[in-house]
Nucleic acid binder design. Structure first.
Lengths: 341, 341
DNA sequence: TTCCGCGTTTGAATCGTTTCAATTAACCTG
DNA sequence: CAGGTTAATTGAAACGATTCAAACGCGGAA
C-alpha cells in the first residue's frame, strides 16, 4: 500500500545531495555550526526545509552511544506527590535539552523491573528511581554500563548512590508530637506494609514521639495500599468501633490515606477533629481542600525532583566517579483544622 | 577514565563469538526462535547470560524503521483526570508490548510543539494527543511519515483523524439542568478561555439549558488557568461581593476549579450549597472527598485512554488507510452535597 | 551412489547518523 | 612568490542490530 511509505524517509544523504554538499557538512551544520561557512549553512537549511528533513534520533544515538534521555520511575502516578516530583524532574531535564522517559511502576516490583529493562535497552543516560523491589544489583549493573543513577526518596542510606530524600523519622515525630501537644493520647498509625521504607520511618518517628509522652499509646494498622479506597475501608472499620475503643487521633502515612479516612469519618458521623483528629503526610494540593482541611507534613516535592535531576545530570556530565551526594530535606508541619479546632 | 567505559558494551557480535555461532543466528534466537535448533538456542542464551548482553534498542530501531513506542502528550499531568487517561493508555499499550513516551505540555503550545518534534525524531509509531495549539498541519506531516495519530478529547470533529471524546455540550447541559432543577437561577460559569474547546462546549451546553428555563441567567468568567490557584482567587472575588450580587450557583469547567472555589467559599464564610451551589466537571477522585462532597460530571477517563490506545494500535498495525473511528462517550451527572442539601 | 529437499546456519549488506583524518581553498607573511 | 597557517569541506569508517540470499549438512528416495 502506497500510504504506508509515503515519503521513503528523507535522510541526511538526500539533504546533502539537494544542497550540493557532502553528508559530513550537513551533519556539521546541525551539530557544529561554527565549522561551517554561513552561505553553506544557509543552503543546507534551505534543503532541510524543502525536504522536510527530520533527524533520525535512533541513528544518532547508535553512533554517539548516548541517548540524551533519562528515565524516571515513579511509584504511583496517581499520587499528586509523585506528579509534583516528576514535574520538578522534567523542568530541570528539559531545561538542559534532554528528554524524560516517565514510567509508572504503580508500587509493583515486576513493572519496575520491566521498565529498568526498557531503560537499559534504550540506553538512557541516567535513571531516577524510588526502588520498590530488590533492585540494587540491577542498579549496579546499570552503573557498570555507564549510566548514572540517583535514588529518590528510598534507600537513601545506600552510600554508593547519590540520593534525595526527606527525613521521614523527623516527619513522623513532628506529626505525632503535634497530636500529643493538642491533647491526643491514643494514636493510630495507618500505612501499607512496613516493607515500605517511608512507612517504617514515619512509624519509627511516631514511636519516638510517643515514647517521650507518658500515657500515650501507639497502634499500627496495615491496609492494602497507599490509596483512597483501602483507607476508606479502614475508616469504616474505625467508625464501626464503639466510641471508647476508637483512637483519638489518626496519623496517616500519606494524604491519600488521610483523605480516604476522612471521607469515612464524615459519612459515618465521626467528627474531626473532636472525635478523632487526623493528620496526613505529603501536603498534597488537595489536603487543604479536603472536607476538613487536613493537617499534614509537607515535603518539598517539586524541589526534590529538581534537585535529583540536577544531581543526575551532573553525574552524567562528569562521569560516574565524582562524589556521591545525599540531600536530605527537612519536612515541615502544616497544622489545619483536622487537628486543631 | 576507566570507569566511564567499564564494559565496552557487549554486542551481538560478542555473544556470537562466545557461543561459537554467527551474529545472524544470535539475532534469530532473539527474534525468530523457531528457525533455530534447540541446542544452539541454549548455547546462545548461555552466552547472553554470561556476558550480560542487553539488546541495543537504537540499533534495532534504526534497522527496522519502527520504534515500538507511542507518544502521549497530556494537557496537564497535575490534573488527575489526565493521569487517569494516561493510566488507561499505558495499560493498553504495555499489554501489547510497546512502550509509552509520556509528555506533559502543561497547556502550553510551545511545549507541545517541542514534544512533537521529539516524537518525530524518535520515530514513534503513533501519537496520542489532545491538541493545544494549531497542530493539524504538524499531524498531517506525521501521518505522511507513516505515524498513526489519534486525537483525545479535542478537535474530535476533525473527520480525518480517529478520535475519542466526550459530549461536552451534553455534559454542560446536564450540569446546568441539575442546578436549575434544584432551584438555582443565577448561574456563573467559570473557565479558562473559550479558546479551549472543552470550555466552549461546556459553556454552550450551559447556555442551552439556561435558554430552556424562564428567568434563568448565565454569566461567564474567565480565569487564568484550569487550576486550583486561579480558581481560589476567583472564589475570593465572589466572596467579596455583596450577597445579593452573588450567583446562586457556580458551574466550574473542571473539578480543580471547583475545589479551588470551594476552598475560597469555605474560608470566606459563604456556605455551600445554601448560599452558592457548586458543580464541577471530570469527577476526579478528590471531588467526593472535598470539604463539601462535590457534584460533578463524570467522564470515563481511564476507559477513554484505553480505547484511544486501542484505536491507535489498530491503526499502527493495519496501516493508516483504514476507516477513521470517532468514539464519543456520554458524560454522567454525579450529584453530591455541593448542589443538594 | 547420486540427487533432492529440508532444516540450520552463515555473513554481507543495510539502516542514518557522527566522527575524523585527509584534502582543498584561501589567505598571510616574510 | 614560496611556505605556512587557517578555515571549509569531503568521504569513508564506524555504531549494533536485522534481514535475506546463499551455503551447508544430512537423511531418504531413486
Amino acid at each position: 500500500m502506497a500510504a504506508q511509505h509515503p515519503h521513503p524517509a528523507t535522510s541526511l544523504r538526500d539533504v546533502a545531495a539537494r544542497a550540493g554538499v557532502s553528508v559530513g557538512t550537513v551533519s556539521n551544520v546541525l551539530n557544529h555550526p561554527t565549522k561551517v561557512s554561513a552561505q553553506t549553512a544557509e543552503r543546507v537549511f534551505a534543503a532541510i526545509e524543502e525536504l522536510g528533513f527530520v533527524r533520525n534520533e535512533a541513528a544518532r544515538q547508535l553512533r554517539q552511544g548516548r541517548s540524551r534521555s533519562v528515565g524516571l520511575i515513579v511509584l504511583d502516578i496517581r499520587n499528586p506527590f509523585f506528579t509534583d516530583v516528576a514535574q520538578g524532574v522534567e523542568d530541570e531535564v528539559t531545561a538542559r535539552l534532554r528528554s524524560v522517559l516517565l514510567a509508572n511502576c504503580a508500587e509493583d516490583a515486576a513493572r519496575e523491573s520491566a521498565y529498568l529493562d526498557l531503560f537499559e535497552e534504550q540506553r538512557v543516560d541516567g535513571v531516577l528511581i524510588s526502588p520498590v523491589g530488590d533492585v540494587l544489583d540491577r542498579l549496579d549493573r546499570l552503573r557498570s554500563r555507564g549510566m548514572a543513577v540517583v535514588l529518590v526518596d528510598r534507600l537513601a542510606s545506600t552510600e554508593s548512590y547519590s540520593s534525595v530524600s526527606v527525613d521521614d523519622v523527623l516527619g513522623g515525630r513532628l506529626a505525632v508530637a503535634h497530636l500529643l501537644e493538642t491533647g491526643r493520647r491514643r494514636i493510630l498509625f495507618v500505612g501499607a506494609s512496613t516493607e515500605i521504607e517511608q512507612v517504617r520511618d514515619r512509624l519509627e518517628g511516631a514511636r519516638q514521639a510517643v515514647a517521650e509522652c507518658a500515657g500515650a499509646t501507639l497502634e499500627y494498622r496495615e491496609i492494602a495500599g497507599m490509596h483512597l479506597e483501602p483507607a476508606l475501608a479502614e475508616g469504616q472499620r474505625i467508625v464501626a468501633l464503639p466510641p471508647d475503643e476508637r483512637p483519638d487521633a489518626v496519623f496517616a502515612a500519606n494524604d491519600l490515606i488521610a483523605i480516604g479516612m476522612l471521607q469515612a469519618f464524615t459519612l459515618g458521623g465521626v467528627s474531626t477533629p473532636q472525635d478523632v483528629a487526623l493528620i496526613g503526610y505529603d501536603d498534597i494540593e488537595y489536603a487543604a481542600a479536603a472536607a476538613i482541611p487536613l493537617s499534614s507534613i509537607r515535603q518539598p516535592s517539586r524541589e526534590m525532583g529538581r534537585r535529583a535531576a540536577e544531581m543526575l545530570l551532573a553525574e552524567i556530565e562528569s562521569g560516574s566517579d565524582g562524589e556521591r551526594q545525599h540531600i536530605v530535606f527537612e519536612p515541615e508541619l502544616v497544622a489545619r483544622a483536622s487537628t486543631l479546632g
